[in-house]
Design a protein around this nucleic acid. Structure first.
Lengths: 352, 352
DNA sequence: CATGCAATTGCATTCGAATGCGATGAGCCG
DNA sequence: CGGCTCATCGCATTCGAATGCAATTGCATG
């Protein structure tokens, strides 16, 4: 019963040591457990001296509130799940960092789930739900059934750069199609007439949007017979794709539209190195994303940059709003990309 | 008392719906709560028909075990914390992805913590401990006191690419110094005599190791008066650093040793674009890391690649071993980097 | 000094699942 | 058919903190 300062030293020596609980602190401070609990809350009522006594006992014991136990009783884990496909994170590390930091400002932690492909979502989702996260941000596509599962569990969810047509759901995305249309317009406006496209993985909805966006715009301009090569968003696949395009097309096209910057860079290197072509003299090449290597001097890509800062901020606030008020109706926010005129493509003159 | 199939439909309509618990499932299945619990465990004993009844009731109610509640009673959250400084994740997204996936294979989830600088660790650490994670992987440096706090809480921790001298602790790292020594040896062996260094942020221990490693080797070769410029690991800072070096050195040195690949690329671009220099004709430039852009054709860096796969695997298994057996003594694993001879530097001829 | 009101504090219960222990029953062997 | 073992199941308790409600205290007011 005699709890002393020496107690603390014993902690490290005793073989199976239990971490201090609010009861231990209460006992040492000579108060009730509820008092301890209240001292460690924000809005709870506790007198100054109570605070002092409890804090003293707590630091003596090295007590820390147990977030797990708290989560059980409050039904709030203070954790959100972030689901990313492998590629998403490899090419947008910023997205993850920013989401994490912004959530962190609201005292919310990120539980990370990565997918090898966008295929094995079901098992992942099961895990997410078991952990009783307060909300979900997903950069991977969900099927209607999967979304229904999440909604049945009453967990708010925000889609990042994807959205389900016809189903009310929250999403934040960059307008891929608009961006591609601008790129095509610039290319076409400056005289390019034969085109090729390097698409991303087939299970990437972002790639699909970009590719079909470009194709649609091209068709509107009467361009047909566009060569399409598939890549995996990686540098090497970009190089290989360019080689295949030249092969199938019987020479380089006027312009190549890659589904992301990294593959565009691959195309540039392949064009220059393996085919001795000038970029943009012999062939114009454009990408999409506007991150990292896109503005290295050797490439200086013409591309569309996603406004990552505003998008992550939107996703975070949108999710938190729904956590705090589940009745809020669904909302989709679409951001225009920032148009970047690099030297990797011959573009129409700047208007104005 | 009459629980029917229609029950399920009510869920979505009832305003405040509680998620199904093991008691609900037990009642519907006409068994005890413990039975339900056992069915949802791995090694627990439950008869075939019991399983069937329980699973039927569970899926009817959309029941999912509550990982939070489970964590409270088992004292295992099945979560580990991964602490990264912002830069670490921006330049090694692979590290995070691989850690996450490897832990995931062991049914362990990653709770992510990112640091703006390596400064605000204390508050982060407090959060980590409150969440009662089973273990920690940190790619940020901890002070002795901070490490002590973690160890007092009996939480296994593994350092990724850093380690505390003189203190027994678990770490997995790439031998930065060895790598730098090799780079210097190659440069010196091929006739370079004047050197400059682009270091990373001052609070980055990795940068410090690399920089001092290079400096030590240079001194052993009798090279002194090395110009040092500081960057922030980013592309622009690499370009700026090169300009400052030329300025202070009164012309380009024979070789520039950058603390990472991205800054090395910045140096190359600045040398070529702003100074019209040939790389490696007029100046050799080497980096460190060996990821992503390092092997783009335009740069083709000479660098040292960190064996990320083996390192993450080592970190994961080391941590899991300690979670399962806390008595295990500390261990440090050091991996040699993979030596890459690119064309960004004139190197001595390949031996043998 | 009595009364009223508000701020503190303690008691008892609750969140949802895991588990030691005892009870039950099935299956097996002699 | 008796006895024994082993698998299976239920009961009751436990993990650690939050919270509604009641009790207590402090303070101001008439």
């Amino acid at each position: 019963m005699t709890v002393q300062v020496g107690e603390k030293a014993q902690k490290s020596t005793r073989a199976k040591w239990k971490r201090a609980t609010s009861y231990d602190v209460a006992e040492l401070a000579g108060v009730s457990q509820s008092a301890v609990s209240r001292v460690f809350q924000d809005g709870a009522s506790a007198s100054k001296q109570m605070r002092k006594r409890v804090m003293a006992a707590a630091s003596k014991l090295g007590y820390r509130p147990n977030a797990i136990a708290r989560g059980l009783i409050t039904r709030r884990s203070n954790m959100v799940a972030v689901i990313m496909s492998q590629q998403t994170n490899l090419y947008y590390p910023e997205v993850l960092v920013q989401l994490t930091q912004r959530f962190s400002n609201h005292r919310i932690r990120v539980l990370l789930f990565t997918l090898k492909s966008e295929g094995d979502i079901d098992s992942t989702l099961e895990q997410v739900l078991q952990f009783r996260v307060d909300g979900i941000v997903t950069a991977a596509m969900l099927s209607g059934a999967q979304l229904a599962t999440v909604q049945e569990a009453n967990i708010p969810i925000v889609f990042y750069n994807r959205s389900l047509a016809d189903i009310p759901s929250n999403s934040v995305r960059c307008d891929q199609e608009e961006g591609e249309r601008w790129l095509v317009a610039q290319l076409f406006g400056s005289g390019h007439r034969t085109f090729a496209i390097v698409s991303g993985p087939e299970d990437s909805s972002v790639s699909t949007e970009r590719t079909t966006g470009a194709l649609r715009m091209l068709r509107e301009h009467g361009v047909d017979g566009v060569t399409i090569a598939t890549g995996d968003y990686g540098y090497d696949s970009g190089r290989a794709a360019f080689a295949r395009i030249v092969d199938r097309h019987g020479g380089p096209p006027d312009a190549v539209i890659a589904a992301n910057d990294v593959m565009a860079i691959g195309c540039i290197d392949e064009a220059r190195e393996s085919f001795g072509l000038n970029v943009p003299g012999d062939v114009s090449i454009v990408g999409f994303d506007g991150v990292g290597p896109a503005n290295y001097a050797a490439y200086d890509l013409s591309t569309v940059r996603q406004p990552v800062e505003r998008m992550t901020e939107a996703a975070v606030s949108m999710l938190i709003d729904r956590i705090e008020n589940p009745e809020l109706s669904a909302e989709k926010r679409v951001f225009s990309g920032e148009r970047i005129r690099g030297s990797s493509a011959e573009f129409a003159a700047d208007p104005g």
